[in-house]
Design a protein around this nucleic acid. Sequence first.
DNA 1: CACTCCTTATGACCGCTGTCATAGTAGCGG
DNA 2: CCGCTACTATGACAGCGGTCATAAGGAGTG
Lengths: 200, 200
Amino acid sequence: MAVSERGPRERMVFSAAQLIRRDGVAATGMREVAAHARAPRGSLQHYFPGGKEQLVNEAVDWAGRYAARRVDRFLAALAEPTPAGLFAQMVRQWTDEYEAAGFGGGCPVAAATVDRAGSVASTREAASAAFTHWTGAVARALSGMGVPEERAEPLATLMISSLEGAILMARAERDVRALTAVSRELGPLLDAAVGGTGAR
Amino acid sequence: MAVSERGPRERMVFSAAQLIRRDGVAATGMREVAAHARAPRGSLQHYFPGGKEQLVNEAVDWAGRYAARRVDRFLAALAEPTPAGLFAQMVRQWTDEYEAAGFGGGCPVAAATVDRAGSVASTREAASAAFTHWTGAVARALSGMGVPEERAEPLATLMISSLEGAILMARAERDVRALTAVSRELGPLLDAAVGGTGAR
DNA sequence: CACTCCTTATGACCGCTGTCATAGTAGCGG
DNA sequence: CCGCTACTATGACAGCGGTCATAAGGAGTG
């Protein structure tokens, strides 16, 4: 969470992602981003000549890469990797945050999609790319665990979809119930896909 | 889609839901809602003295009841009801819309959660209530199909979560891929819960 | 007609937001 | 010291959005 030790430009992208995931894209102002990043207001114009659109897109891009990196890290940390174990970790990241810091934040990519998918083409594409990145990381992990190639990507999509949806429900309800439910219910299905043929 | 044949008040709530699901809460203006509903601007103040907050909350509430009603209707229309069949219908409603009308709209409850959960308590509660309504309808349907009581609600949560998440991904990607994937992958798990004991 | 209640009409206000223009400072190679 | 580039500082502006104040239609009812 430490913001410092990075250039002002990167700090602003990071702050944008944080504010977007809390308040949504529309409610996040540029001046606010600069203040949050403790960066000078004048730098906005300098580093992001494309304006808010560029800043938002970079924040979404950053979030997608971050999510993919997290997946790789979860995978590496698992003593004995299973699909259910990976999914449990992905969910746990959110339950931990919500229990420790409250239900203030959601997923920045989801926020960008809701607020901008219909109006700003480049942002919609950034969100799409972020989901693709993330899904790719999960699918590769599944493949590495023995899930048949043709099921890895659909299962990764299912994992991310249910996680995103559960995040929404958890924020609305201020309760991690939905998150724990999807983790528990989906686990067996995921593990059952290991080593099988392509059969559903 | 026909807006007419209802009082101006109800039309405005309906229009608000439509605009919110397309553009998000913050980007939806009150004047715009009135115009879309072909209702006089002055009526906003009259019917919604609580301002935008009240209008948004009622739109979310409406969306929750609508979703629950749809579930009941899907259930009634199924010749031979199965959990996977119900879920397929729920997903199909979205693929049909996206293929027929484009990827312009998402779920209004999701939009309200993303844009307001952190800032407006009453709206967060409205979203929570909407999810509860919806989940309840699905859980009752599952119970009626023979799913054990203690798994009906978690499975309903999983269905709605993955549907919401897949909606997000579909909008971002402008492709129904995610929706069809979750429907296909989740189906067998859902049907396997019929008649079983509580065992996961 | 008078009175009353539900509904509409309008215009103004104020705060905020993204963006631009313009000018300033800092460091550095020459 | 010059000149150049990278960055920062500010103020203005035009637009929009939610809200309020105020007043007017308009249909019943007595």
